[in-house]
């Protein structure tokens, strides 16, 4: 549990950094680290398959999406960045206080419920569950990947026309 707590606190800190840092690029990197910490938590919670997936896709692919979006849109000059930074601080500096105070509140409130929990399932294999019992989810994945492909095709076609 101690290791879990350390990981969770690290997760919160990195998430805070991702939200509060002034550079968008650092923000994207911080998101990758959030994913990496989440991966470790998943390993600790006995879900290696999802953890590997999270590491490869969320820590690998999503930062690439973010970084390409950031480099394709370079909006601010350095002077603007400085002014922007000052503005941002006035809006964002409440957040750590909110988080710390809510953390203090949660140490006093013990969340719990009297619901009877369901019995543990028979040890099923993830692959069997995905392929044999939930094939609809797989079809859904194929469908949404196709939509993503068409979306990129449609949104980025303009570039070709301009050139």
């Amino acid at each position: 549990m101690i290791v879990n707590s350390i990981l969770l606190i690290a997760l919160l800190c990195v998430a805070l950094w991702a939200v509060m840092t002034r550079s968008l690029l650092r923000s994207a990197i911080a998101l990758a680290i959030v994913s990496a910490v989440l991966t470790m938590l998943m390993f600790r919670l006995h879900s290696p398959l999802a953890a590997v997936f999270e590491l490869s896709v969320c820590a690998g692919l999503i930062p690439v999406v973010f970084v390409s979006a950031i480099t394709l849109t370079q909006p601010l000059s350095t002077k603007e960045v400085l002014q922007h930074m000052r503005e941002r601080l006035t809006r964002f500096w409440y957040l750590p206080f909110i988080i710390v105070s809510s953390g203090i509140i949660f140490t006093f409130i013990h969340l719990s419920s009297k619901m009877p929990l369901p019995g543990a399932e028979v040890d099923k294999d993830v692959r069997i569950l995905l392929w044999n019992i939930r094939p609809l989810d797989l079809i859904g994945q194929i469908l949404i990947l196709l939509i993503g492909a068409f979306g990129i095709l449609i949104i980025f076609k303009e570039k070709k026309e301009n050139e």
């Binding site: 989810d137 859904g140 994945q141």
Partner: peptide
Amino acid sequence: TLYVFLEIAAA
């Protein structure tokens, strides 16, 4: 599965 198809239609 409902959620998955919701996201498909939304996307």
